[in-house]
Computed example of a mutant assay.
Amino acid sequence: MKILLTGGAGFIGRWVAKHLLSEGHQLWILDDLSNGREENISEFKEHPGFIQFINDSILNETLLEDLFNENHFEICYHLGASINVQDSIDDPRTTFNNDTIGTFYILEQCRKHNTKVIFMSTCMVYDRCNDETGITENHSTKPASPYAGAKVAAENMVLSYYHTYGLPTVVIRPFNTYGPFQKTGGEGGVVAIFINNHLKGIDLNIYGDGTQTRDLLYVEDCAKFVVSAGFSDAVNGEIVNAGLGKDISINNLASLITGNLMKIKHIEHIHPQSEIQKLLCNSGKATSLLDWKPEVTLEEGIARTKTWIQQGGLL
């Protein structure tokens, strides 16, 4: 199939691209490199299915119109977004423009060409979970940051195009994803940052008291989930979660990675109002509709990520 992948030079996008190419599809990647890196997809450049990399923005309507008119995409995986919660608090306009208005521009082109849309949302739209069975798609939302608010607004637009125009769309909400190719600096995920600091002998800094929990999904499992949503009519018009199904406190995660409690430090939270105390995913819907289950344990995923960083995979 002819597929457009926005945000394809990013961390998760890179793995989605790899999976799509391995299945024999023709792939175009659109990414402005505000979060991604062209080096992430350099290994795909000679692949016969890799048609084009476009270094531009989803806010460029003229570009989008030309791309869709020329190529008549059958599927659009829309991962391109501003993804940093703290940045969204400091600069909500940029996040809203990229995540909400940019999604609207994508939807308009997909509507004209009847292109299926897989919209990457986030678990950060959810309210705190106190149920040990985990957060289902029916769990209440609480946009505690402009990032989450922009994603909720975009989700509603995506679903409205399904109900109004019959456009095949699906909203996916992966939980905290980690693994090789994730940045190990300030914009990276907690697992990559902790592993990198541990390997350098640097303290592992935890915001707040560290009792907040996260459900950590290995990136290859996430990519398989993302791709599968594009090829199933069963999820059209639906919201679907994906996670490991187990949560771990940030304190315990740091201990698991470093093994040295003296290297774990607690610091004042920059934006405590955006913190979600407990995130635990219930992926039952993904299992039922997509026959998807995570395969990589947290311990194995951490080991793979550590090996990647040790072999020079620092970003």
Rank of each mutant, 00 (worst) to 15 (best):
E46K: 15
F73V: 04
L27D: 13
F50R: 08
G36C: 11
L59G: 09
F44G: 07
L30P: 09
G80Y: 01
S34N: 14
L67R: 12
H25Y: 14
H25C: 08
L59R: 14
N60D: 12
L30Y: 08
F50T: 08
N69H: 04
L27I: 03
D31L: 01
I54E: 15
C76A: 13
G49H: 05
L27K: 08
G24V: 06
W28H: 15
H72E: 11
I41G: 06
E70P: 00
S34R: 13
Q52Y: 06
H47D: 15
E23Q: 15
H25F: 07
H25E: 08
S57F: 02
L30W: 07
L67Q: 08
E23H: 13
G49Y: 05
N40Y: 08
E61D: 13
W28R: 11
E38P: 00
S57N: 07
E70K: 15
E61T: 14
S34D: 13
I58N: 07
S57A: 03
F73I: 01
I51H: 14
L59Y: 07
Q52P: 02
N60Q: 07
L27F: 06
D31N: 08
C76F: 01
H47T: 05
L33K: 11
D32V: 02
H72C: 04
F50Y: 12
E43N: 08
S34T: 14
C76L: 09
E46V: 04
S57I: 00
I51G: 11
E70N: 11
H78Y: 01
I41Q: 11
F50L: 05
S57D: 07
Q26I: 00
L79Y: 10
F68P: 00
G24S: 08
L30D: 09
Q52A: 03
N69K: 12
L79C: 04
D66T: 07
Q52S: 10
I51C: 12
L63N: 15
I41Y: 04
I58Q: 03
D31V: 03
D31P: 04
E46R: 15
Y77S: 05
I75M: 10
I54D: 12
E43P: 00
L64R: 15
R37T: 07
L64K: 13
D32K: 11
S42M: 04
E70D: 06
C76H: 05
H47V: 03
F50H: 06
S34H: 10
I58R: 11
H72G: 04
H72T: 04
S57K: 04
L67P: 00
S42D: 09
F53P: 05
I41A: 06
E23L: 12
L27W: 02
H47K: 04
G36T: 10
D32G: 02
I54V: 10
I75K: 10
Q52M: 01
G80K: 10
N40V: 05
E65S: 13
N55C: 03
S34L: 11
E39W: 02
L33M: 09
E65Q: 13
E70F: 01
F50W: 05
H72Q: 13
T62L: 09
I41F: 03
R37L: 10
D56W: 00
E39D: 07
G36Q: 12
N71P: 01
F44S: 11
S57R: 10
